[in-house]
Amino acid sequence: MLDVVLAKISIWAIPVLFCVFLVLGWARRVPVYETFIQGAAEGFQIAVRIIPYLVAMFVAIKVFRVSGAMDMLARLCAPVLSILGAPPEVLPLALMRPLSGSSALGIATELIKTYGPDSFLGRLASVMQGTTDTTFFVLTVYFGSVGIKKYRHALALGLIADLTGLLLSIFLCNLIFK
């Protein structure tokens, strides 16, 4: 029931939001078309401004993964994870998640397919994927768009969020699914 309602929200939200903006603008006598063009003009510059930041990040992350450095790091961290109650197979996912959304999703999909979506591993991988965020990608894009190179405590906060999400997903999955 709940998931049907939630799915409906995600389909309807954007068209409804557009209607609200347009009707409200029209009612307030905003020249809607002109205003749209004026706001939209910035879109290109903002997207292009991010390019150097994203190239720097993507190159580093992809090289780290393809070269096998990621697997070495995963093997080093595996004992810590098994103490917490997570199978070592999910470690590449945990390490990849803050760095790259598409790679992490690839790893999660592979785990779910290999071990089955209703296995403990499949469920844990699903929850981990939903709980943590691609912190580096978000910081790179957001700070890059305004040209900021010094992130101060934003990076630490983002990584704490990922770590908390990771530990909580392991804990909750052990509690609910075992």
């Binding site: 903006f21 409200l24 009612a27 307030r28 205003t35 749209f36 939209a40 879109g43 997207a47 994203l54």
Partner: peptide, 21 residues
């Protein structure tokens, strides 16, 4: 970044309307 261009342009246009309203 290229994939972002269309998306950003559309939403920033809509957002400007919401802001002016």
């Amino acid at each position: 970044c290229l994939d972002l261009i269309g998306l950003m342009t559309l939403w920033l246009g809509m957002l400007e309307i919401a802001k002016q309203a």
